[in-house]
Amino acid sequence: MSTSFFFGYGSLVNRRTHAFDPAHKAVAKGWRRVWARVPGRPVSLLTVSRDAGSEIEGLIAPVTGEGWAVLDQREADYDRTDARADVRHEAPTVEELAIYVVPEADRLPPDTEHPVLLSYLDVVLQGYLGEFGKEGAERFLASTGDWRVPFLNDRDAPLYPRAQSLSDAERGFVDAALLYVGAQVFSR
């Protein structure tokens, strides 16, 4: 069994988007989620920033064989960063634990030309609802920075490559959450 793990805090919490197993619930202390766009990408995404007073929930899962190459390709705009000292978990024998972070120098604020995809947020919140329940998804909302960024409603024709179908209850939670946090949702 592998002793190398990743900590997922966004779409990697949704087990439907990857085959890394077994996954374990975990908490990363000293990190906060933020929205960012990266030069050269058409959409914005989640990343994390150091924040001594914050912690975020997520999943860790072991990485074996070519797994790091697969993850590094999926998370191409991120640096794989050591987080072993920051993450609490109940997994046995974790010798390496990485978190993916967009470098500060590469981050720009999301805008309407580079929005967050609603299909991406759907996947993220579906993962949190499945792993941590409604209360955990609400903690996700509270532990993620500025929500007043543009979200492109692409649900009818998802642009996110790992888009998932949501139940009516999951979709209702996401829609209510967007209203609650004051997000700007638009269509093209």
Rank of each mutant, 00 (worst) to 15 (best):
P110M: 11
P115S: 01
S49I: 15
F151V: 00
I99H: 09
A83F: 10
A83T: 05
S119M: 01
T64A: 15
E138G: 01
P109I: 06
P92M: 02
V123L: 13
A83Y: 12
L97D: 10
D146T: 04
F151N: 00
Y78L: 06
P62S: 09
R84E: 00
A137C: 09
T64E: 15
E104C: 04
D146A: 08
E55K: 05
P150H: 12
D79K: 08
G145W: 07
W147C: 06
G127N: 05
L141S: 01
F140V: 02
E113I: 00
G53E: 14
R80E: 04
P110N: 10
D156C: 03
Y128P: 05
A83M: 04
H114R: 15
R88M: 04
E57V: 01
E131V: 14
T81C: 09
G67V: 04
P62C: 08
Y120W: 02
D146K: 02
E55C: 04
A91I: 03
K134E: 15
D72L: 02
V124T: 12
G65M: 10
A83N: 11
R107E: 15
L45H: 08
P150A: 11
A85Q: 13
L121W: 13
L46C: 10
G67K: 05
L141F: 02
Q73F: 10
G130Y: 06
W147I: 09
V101W: 11
A142T: 12
E104T: 12
T112P: 01
V70R: 14
I56L: 11
D154K: 09
R148N: 11
K134V: 15
V48M: 13
R139P: 00
Y100L: 03
T112G: 04
G145C: 02
V48H: 08
L117K: 06
S49L: 14
L125M: 14
T93R: 13
R50V: 13
V102G: 02
V123K: 08
R107K: 09
E96C: 00
A83R: 07
A69H: 11
F132K: 09
G67Y: 07
G133P: 00
F140N: 02
R107C: 15
E57F: 11
E135P: 00
T112Q: 12
Y78G: 05
S143C: 10
E95K: 13
R80L: 05
P109F: 05
T93L: 14
G53P: 04
R148Q: 13
I56N: 11
